[in-house]
Design a protein around this nucleic acid. Structure first.
Lengths: 215, 215
DNA sequence: CTATTATCTATACATTGTTCAGATACAAAC
DNA sequence: GTTTGTATCTGAACAATGTATAGATAATAG
């Protein structure tokens, strides 16, 4: 909103260099600020300093551009999760609990601070076909991170073994559902901490409020 | 897609009668079929048999029309939930468990069969301001239904009392998150039953697989 | 019957996604 | 180094969209 920028940004060379990447980067920035529904192909092209038609050399249509943005975002989210885990200092059985907590919190924090990008990732534009679900999911970095964390919890006996098979799908559903509902204003922001508490309690992970950042 | 209908539908009287309602109804039908991102104000007006400008007498802009559609949908979802509960025949302590299960399943079934409407309800267009969250939530019929069900579960001792405070937010997050992820293709459809099993188990509701539709 | 008012229409405008013929610059061949 | 070829980008055009404005129409009140 602050920068309409419908006038084309000047450019030195005729060939752009890496237009595909530049288009995705510009589109990401604009979606991040104004939401996916208020982004125009023309504005993205103008920002990059290119004619609207040029985009069609790399993407069949606008939807493809936006999908391209979405795919890259899943990696960004996984980066955040790994950073959050790397920042932890605890060791041993406590570590697994802290990691579990950190995973949920970083997921929520991503949704809270990057709401427009979060909406894009889990909206129509990034919707997967039923065929590729199983494969994509198991390949996804975020899934692997969660999976390993739950394995550690189970190995150190810090989790109800009967619930282990439900670990990934249950945790992901809780954290994603809470984030979505809060982000869209159907639950208050403060509810997230409670929900995480409840999840840990119900999985038999944390005893009481003893969680996280102790050494 | 099947019916473009950009030509205006004929009308008998000059005044439509209840144009506001008719516009919402037509918009709902078109969103239901083609998704909110492929619905045009002009097409909705044409379907009702009215000029595009006529809509601006009842809605300040297109977004307001769509928001109007969304609000009505929350009632439709609550209707489905109440129907699902009313269809149950069990009594006593078993009834509370069966009701809990039915609530989750009807929520998911709504998302699965009415995906485009589900996306609208929990998307940007129906996003609430932080101020009105608490009030709207406690007023919402779906919340009350869930709340009562959990009270019954707690009263009959069919639920871990320590988890009761987390009941609503945890259940809603799980069911909503699972529905969202499945609907957008990030989890397979078959996962929902497992997730519900896991939720019941973790809340201490069902012992093993003994759930639901027993008398 | 007349005047008032709510309701709807016609027209216009800027912006959008998309197409297509052609211009431009780089790379390889001679 | 010149020529040829090819990938890349431009320009103008099109239909469709959301929306504003001025005016037409019909229901209602006096």
């Amino acid at each position: 909103m602050t920068t309409p920028t419908l006038t084309r940004q000047p450019r030195t060379s005729y060939h752009h260099g890496n237009l595909e990447h530049a288009l995705i980067a510009a589109a990401t920035a604009m979606i991040r600020e104004n939401g996916v529904e208020h982004v125009s192909l023309r504005a993205v092209a103008a920002q990059v300093g290119v004619s609207p038609s040029a985009a069609y050399h790399y993407f069949p249509d606008k939807d493809a551009l936006i999908s391209g943005v979405g795919e890259a975002l899943f990696d960004q989210l996984a980066d955040r999760q790994e950073e959050a885990i790397a920042a932890l200092t605890s060791r041993g059985a406590v570590a697994a609990r802290a990691r579990f907590r950190a995973l949920g919190e970083s997921y929520f924090e991503w949704g809270r601070s990057e709401t427009n990008l979060f909406r894009l990732m889990f909206g129509v534009f990034c919707s997967l076909d039923p065929g590729e679900v199983e494969q994509k999911r198991l390949e996804s970095r975020a899934w692997v991170i969660l999976h390993n964390c739950l394995d550690d919890l189970a190995a150190t006996g810090a989790m109800d073994p009967a619930l282990r098979p439900y670990g990934e799908i249950l945790s992901w559903s809780v954290v994603h559902g809470a984030t979505s509902l809060i982000v869209e204003g159907h639950l208050p922001e403060a509810a997230f901490a409670s929900i995480l508490d409840g999840l840990e309690l119900s999985l038999g992970i944390a005893n009481g409020k003893a969680n996280g950042n102790s050494k």
